[in-house]
Simulated scan of single mutants.
Amino acid sequence: MGLNAALAVHPASGHGAAARIADAVAERLRPAVDRLDLLTATSVEESRALMRSAHAEGLDVLIVLGGDGAAHQGVQFCADHDVALGLVPSGTGNDFARALGTPADALAAADTLAEALRTGTRRVLDLGRLDPGPAGQGAWFATVLCSGFDAAVNARANALRWPSGPRRYDVAILAELAAFRPRPVTLHTDDGVLELDATLVAVGNTPYYGGGVPICPGATPDDGLFDVTVIGAAGRLQLLRLLPGLRTGAHLAHPAVQTLRTRTLRIEADANPAWPAYADGETQGHTPVIATCVPRALTVVAP
């Protein structure tokens, strides 16, 4: 039986970059598979419908051309349908692709992916899963679940139209510094309960968020555990001094930072107002939030 693949294109990713390079990416991938369908969607609902139709026709590999938001949708589908995932990054953050060692250039990534398709190279990864709560089945996440200051930054960055790329997060950080305050947080882990005043909690299945920030530098998606980074009650001046180290991983040495490892985590924060929560850069409502590391939940086509 031949290899049936689909290329899911999110035209708005990377300010239109995905749409501009879709044909060139498809040209590189097509010789490596027996069938390649092009799935172009302008909404999450349309994308999911196209993926379901492709699955009904015997889909083996879903290849996502887009950024972290597009990758997040691909993860949901592939984990739920036992379909392998391939990534060709063309967004502003590309944190999941970065964690997989995928080339940052989309065409180079397509060439690397094509070779992996030809050789049958696969990796099986853990994923995080959020507790379903009253709304139904919980979302999967591949990179980082964050709550607190960093989630507020993520929300503000998503609303900005300028600048693009990692600088958008830098602008959002400066804007949030003026208003954000630490608050009492309770963390329920495998090893017990931790209560403290905190600025942020980041739960890493992989190291990066925010366009390459290694918030959980030691996180690996094949050990069955989350790496959790907690920044305690840091004031604005402390945060300003700590933030430059985030892009190098030096923040772990700061006295306000502590780390832990756990398979499950419940985050509870003082609800006035509730802390926002984001996973893979996508909003997941507010605290309380429960996450579980699920071993071997996703197959990816990657070296």
Score class of each variant (00 low, 15 high):
Leu3Lys: 11
Leu7Gln: 08
Gly14Glu: 02
His15Gln: 15
His15Asn: 15
Ile21Ser: 02
Leu29Phe: 11
Leu29Asn: 08
Arg30Met: 10
Ala32Leu: 10
Asp34Asn: 14
Arg35Leu: 12
Leu39Asn: 07
Ala54Asp: 05
Ala56Leu: 12
Gly58Asn: 09
Leu62Pro: 03
Val64Cys: 10
Ala71Met: 12
His72Ser: 13
Phe77Lys: 01
Ala79Tyr: 07
Ala79Cys: 10
Asp82Ile: 01
Asp82Leu: 11
Pro89Trp: 03
Pro89Arg: 05
Gly91Leu: 05
Gly93Lys: 00
Asn94Asp: 14
Ala97Met: 06
Gly101Leu: 04
Ala104Cys: 09
Leu107Gly: 07
Ala110Arg: 06
Ala110Gly: 08
Asp111Thr: 14
Asp111Lys: 04
Thr112Ala: 15
Arg118Ser: 14
Gly120Thr: 05
Arg123Pro: 01
Gly133Lys: 05
Ala135Phe: 10
Ala135Met: 08
Ala139Cys: 11
Leu145Met: 11
Ser147Val: 02
Ala159Asp: 14
Gly165Phe: 01
Pro166Leu: 04
Pro166Met: 04
Arg168Gln: 11
Glu176Arg: 15
Ala178Tyr: 04
Ala179Gly: 13
Arg181His: 11
Pro182His: 06
Val185Trp: 05
His188Val: 15
Val193Asp: 09
Glu195Cys: 14
Leu200Glu: 02
Thr206Glu: 08
Pro207Leu: 05
Pro207Cys: 06
Tyr208Ala: 01
Tyr208Asn: 07
Gly210Trp: 00
Gly212Asn: 01
Pro217Trp: 00
Gly218Gln: 08
Asp222Phe: 09
Leu225Ala: 13
Leu225Met: 13
Leu225Asn: 03
Asp227Thr: 02
Thr229Met: 08
Ala233Leu: 02
Ala233His: 04
Gln238Arg: 15
Leu240Ile: 15
Gly245Tyr: 00
Leu246Thr: 03
Leu246His: 04
Arg247Ser: 14
Ala253Tyr: 00
His254Tyr: 07
Ala256Cys: 12
Val257Ile: 04
Thr259Trp: 02
Arg261Tyr: 02
Thr262Val: 10
Thr262Ile: 06
Arg263Val: 08
Thr264Lys: 11
Arg266Asn: 07
Arg266His: 09
Ala269Tyr: 01
Ala269Lys: 02
Pro273Tyr: 06
Ala274Pro: 15
Tyr278Arg: 05
His286Thr: 15
His286Trp: 10
Ala291Phe: 09
Cys293Ile: 10
Val294Glu: 15
Val301Cys: 13
Pro303His: 13
